[in-house]
């Protein structure tokens, strides 16, 4: 498991949780995929835990890591 974290803020704008109507906060979350676990800080609703994965992360490093965890 890797635990050196980095803050991934939204690509733009201020985000509000659609369900709880409170602003998202930068909170530590653990992303799990197959046998990989990644501790990162992401925009998250402090009430319900809904997490935003910024597009740049989802289509960038996250997809690269996902590819490396998959095999032919």
């Amino acid at each position: 498991m890797l635990n050196r974290e980095k803050n991934f803020k939204p690509d733009h704008g201020k985000w509000i949780c659609g369900r709880c109507h409170v602003p998202l906060e930068q909170l530590k979350v653990q992303a799990l995929y197959l046998q990989g676990a990644f501790d990162v800080t992401l925009p998250r609703c402090p009430k319900c835990g809904m997490t935003l994965v910024p597009e740049s992360l989802a289509t960038g490093k996250m997809v690269e890591a996902e590819g490396l965890l998959e095999d032919k």
Binding site: N3, K6, G36, K61, E64
Partner: peptide, 12 residues
């Protein structure tokens, strides 16, 4: 500092 994804990408 490196985030967990970047570290993983280097390691693997």
């Amino acid at each position: 500092p490196q985030d967990a994804f970047s570290q993983f990408l280097v390691a693997r």
